[in-house]
């Protein structure tokens, strides 16, 4: 079983959106069952799950002090992936959750504000000695700043090959607790999410091998 933590000190980077999309895509790809845990007090992931008709991915109503215990329970109970969404700003909370991760995914929008803020997240992940991947989220097609952001991020770590481009289908699909793939499996956004999961899945397997 793998523990994937989505972290970014910058609000609006796409942590919650990516958490739910990766969870659903992992199950669709047959790599579930997946557990979602919402460590962000804003509760975006919990609200999405409440709106969702499908029971999967399952949601754990955990508490910070119970997180390690619940992760172990999930491991013993046959789950394949635990995805934890974290809040922006709260450095101590992010550090506590990151310490439990097998891999940290850092969504970043291709903007100077996001790139300025990502340094603090990198520090947290590096001090916990955890592998991390950057994902460029909310990119505009054919915009030069996207490749510039990728170059800037690659100086500090691995950047996912899959980039998620801005699409209104991301918020639209969340209205009734679905994902872009469930709204329109043939859409570009659905393909981008599938590509991202393939990449993240491979990295999770690689980091598990290294840890072993």
């Amino acid at each position: 079983m793998h523990v994937l933590v989505l972290a970014s000190q910058k609000g609006g980077a796409g942590k919650t959106t990516l958490s739910r999309h990766i969870a659903v895509e992992a199950e669709r790809a047959g790599e579930g069952p997946v557990v979602l845990i919402d460590a962000d007090p804003q509760g975006g992931l919990a609200s999405w799950w409440n709106r969702r008709q499908a029971e999967t991915p399952v949601f754990f109503a955990s508490r910070l002090e119970d997180l390690p215990k619940h992760i172990e329970q999930a491991r013993a109970g046959g789950f394949n992936l635990v995805i934890i969404d974290t809040p922006p700003q709260a450095t101590n909370l992010i550090s506590a959750v990151v310490s439990l991760a097998d891999l940290v995914l850092i969504p970043t929008r291709p903007s100077p504000d996001d790139l300025d803020a990502v340094g603090r997240t990198i520090d947290i992940v590096e001090s916990a000695n955890k592998p991390m991947i950057f994902v460029i989220n909310g990119a505009t097609k054919n915009a030069r700043i996207t490749s510039q952001a990728a170059i800037a991020l690659s100086q500090s770590g691995t950047v996912a090959k899959a980039t998620l481009h801005h699409s209104v289908s991301f918020p639209t699909s969340g209205i009734d607790g679905r994902t872009v793939g469930e709204l329109d499996p043939t859409s570009n956004s659905a393909k981008e999410v599938a590509d991202l999961w393939k990449y993240v899945s491979a990295r999770l397997r690689k980091s598990a091998k290294v840890a072993a």
Binding site: D38, D40, G43, N50, F59, R63
Partner: peptide, 8 residues
């Protein structure tokens, strides 16, 4: 469903 809450 409807009862999911984030960490307190």
């Amino acid at each position: 469903k409807g009862g999911a809450r984030p960490i307190d």
